[in-house]
Design a protein around this nucleic acid. Sequence first.
DNA 1: GTACTTGTTGAACG
DNA 2: TCGTTCAACAAGTA
Length: 293
Amino acid sequence: MPELPEVETVAGDLKKVLVGKTIKSIISFDKKTFVTSLPSLRRAALGHKIIDVRRRAKMLIIDFGKHLLVVHLKMTGQLIFQSNKKLIAGGHPIVSTGTTVPNKFTRLVFTLRDGGSPRFGEAGTLYFNDIRKFGWVKAIKADEFSVIDNAYGHEPFDKALTFEKFLSLINRRLRTSIKAALLDQKLVVGLGNIYVDEVLFKAGVRPARLVKTLTLSEKKKIYLAIPVILKKAILKRGTTFSNFRDGAGQKGNFVAYLKVYGRAGKVCKNCGQLIKKIRLAGRGTHFCPNCQK
DNA sequence: GTACTTGTTGAACG
DNA sequence: TCGTTCAACAAGTA
């Protein structure tokens, strides 16, 4: 389940290998995988050189200059680059899906060549896999990106997201739970179910608390916990990564640092009480009844 | 077989 | 209009 740290990791890894390469061909195995039609996907990308790969919210952006491919992995999407025997992968764990590409979950295949000239040979393949077909790929003109961009809120590491700004944002959701407010990508982007639970544990606030009941001090703790949790997760290369090949060094390690998520019925690492799980905002929600007030 | 999982959207609600 | 909740999507896992 890629949230911000996972997408950030994938974007960084792919940037290293994709920049400078040119899309040679695009093959589709599933029309549902992209919002954009295959012909316009090809128009935007074929023969164009990749100049950057980056992240915005939980989206991956492959930048061709005049055009962009915008990729959302949603829950089970993977982007896998293969060159010779080397795999660079990111997204949903590949436990049950086998370790080879393409496989039955492969939706799109991009073949690449080095540099801009057709005289260069193939230089790897980029696979877009998605088990549940929630993910998508859009091709847009660069100057149309603001339409997508404007639908999302602040980046959690953006200096523009001051505490005052954060307050004014969550104060728009006074009658909802703090969990629902933090999941809302129109306020602050990048937090999904896992990291919201972790942020609220670190802040010592129960997920079900309504925003209007929070003290200023609690809001400050939440505000401060967001970048701490996310940065640590990025450092550990995310929570849900899995090795695609031995020794690839791609395994996400943050799962070992999770304090509440997925630990229902286990003892709190902080106080020893049992972690509780409830259903909130339509999501499984984990917290420590002792550490979180 | 059934319940459960999740990011995002859009419908339905008050 | 606004804020909020909830179903829907898909398919693998327990």
